[in-house]
Amino acid sequence: MREMPHLFDANVFLGPIFLRHDDTPDDVPRLLAAMDENGISRALVTHGLAKWQHPAVGNRLVIQETKGIDRLVPCWVVMPSVTGELPPERELVAQLLDSGARAARLCTGMNRLTLEPFEIETLLEALAERRVPLFLDTNNRHWSEPRPWAFIEWALRTYPTLPLVLLREPPANYRTLFTLMDRHSNLYIETCYFQGHDAIALGAGRWGADRLVFGSGLPEWDPGMAITGLTYASFSVEERDMVASGSLLRLLDNCVV
């Protein structure tokens, strides 16, 4: 009988999220209970209010609320500092690492970012210097929504030490995505929405299992599909375990602290 994988979920929100309902876990105890129900042992968590109110609020809360809880690793939402909403980029990244966070999330549409180099290059440079993995959150629900491919290609090429993880990467973009995955070893796929036919195993075979990162989207999204998409994929237990937790651990350990 196969052992259950140790699931380290790269895509989880803590606290209130937009359009939640009575059953949505919205604090630490309820989130941990939902993780237990779904066999998720650890999670990289962004605070809901960092996305749905403001990073200055949510980044502080995620550190406070995860303090002393090994199962929850904090992730900050980042954006340019020019308006004074957040500290200057290098300082922001230093604070992120000092606080114990080990990853950053860029909420492109929610924060009305154009992703033009003039807007975003200082931030990406600061993250790349410390090799803080950047999770790209376009807030997409569906597979047919557009992705900022020109930005993604530019960022990968310009900042080869910056790991870029595509959250909720849909199954309909392979004609574009495969070229970038072939060319750029700093591009990673979070698997919750990567549901082309056996695509997780196909991707592991083509690029290596360490380029795929398990995530669920909990508690905005149901983790069931993300989990069985991994557990029933046609690859070895070693590859499964790399996607389940190994890839994310490597990314977080690779930060220059």
């Binding site: 549901q195 056996d198 149901d222 069931g224 599909m225 998409g229 557990t231 029933y232």
Partner: peptide, 17 residues
């Protein structure tokens, strides 16, 4: 299938409360 993968789709049911 093959617009989506059975391995994912069935999880909605298998892990539902």
């Amino acid at each position: 299938f093959p617009w989506m993968c059975p391995t994912h789709q069935i999880g909605r049911i298998l892990l539902a409360p």
